[in-house]
Simulated assay, not measured.
Amino acid sequence: MLLLMAIVFSIPFYAYCIWGLYKPDDAIMFMDRWRYEKPPQHSELQMMLFKFSNILGIGFITVFLLIMVLINGGYSRIF
């Protein structure tokens, strides 16, 4: 049951990280767009670091899920 919950709760994090790789401007401004009258300009360094952090996030989530699978004894004990 714990593995199933971990998989379900990791889906939004995967979605945000993948969205951040393809549209970093929109992902950076997510939930902050209301603060500005016009969108701010982001530097190339900021975009590169944001994409790098999204790749690291995908990696950490994947490692976490693999550890959960190993701890729970594989896919046969999902439920």
Rank of each mutant, 00 (worst) to 15 (best):
D26G: 15
E44K: 11
I67E: 09
F64P: 00
I55W: 11
L56V: 15
F30I: 08
F13D: 00
I55G: 06
C17G: 01
L70M: 14
P40C: 07
Q46R: 14
Y22N: 06
Y16G: 02
K38H: 07
L2C: 04
F79I: 13
Y36K: 07
M29K: 11
E44A: 13
A6N: 04
M1Q: 10
P40K: 10
P40R: 07
N72L: 03
E37T: 11
K23Y: 08
F64K: 01
L70A: 14
I61Y: 12
N72Q: 08
D26P: 00
M29E: 13
F13M: 06
I61E: 09
M1F: 07
N54A: 15
L49Y: 08
K38N: 13
Y36W: 14
D32T: 11
S43F: 00
I58G: 04
F79S: 09
F30P: 00
V63E: 07
K23R: 14
I28L: 14
D25E: 12
F9T: 15
M68V: 01
F50G: 02
I28Q: 07
M1P: 11
L3Q: 12
E37P: 01
M47T: 06
R33V: 07
A6Q: 10
S53A: 14
M5W: 06
I55L: 15
S43Q: 07
R35D: 10
N54P: 01
S43E: 05
V8D: 05
F79A: 13
P24V: 04
M31Y: 10
D26R: 14
L65D: 08
Y75A: 12
S43V: 04
A6G: 05
W19G: 07
I58Q: 02
G73A: 06
M31N: 12
I67S: 12
I78E: 02
S10F: 01
P40Q: 10
F30C: 05
K51R: 15
P12R: 10
L3E: 07
Y22M: 10
M1S: 13
A6I: 10
H42E: 00
A15F: 08
I58Y: 01
V63F: 13
I71S: 02
L4C: 06
S10W: 02
Y75H: 04
V69R: 05
G20P: 04
M5Y: 08
F30E: 13
R33S: 12
R77I: 01
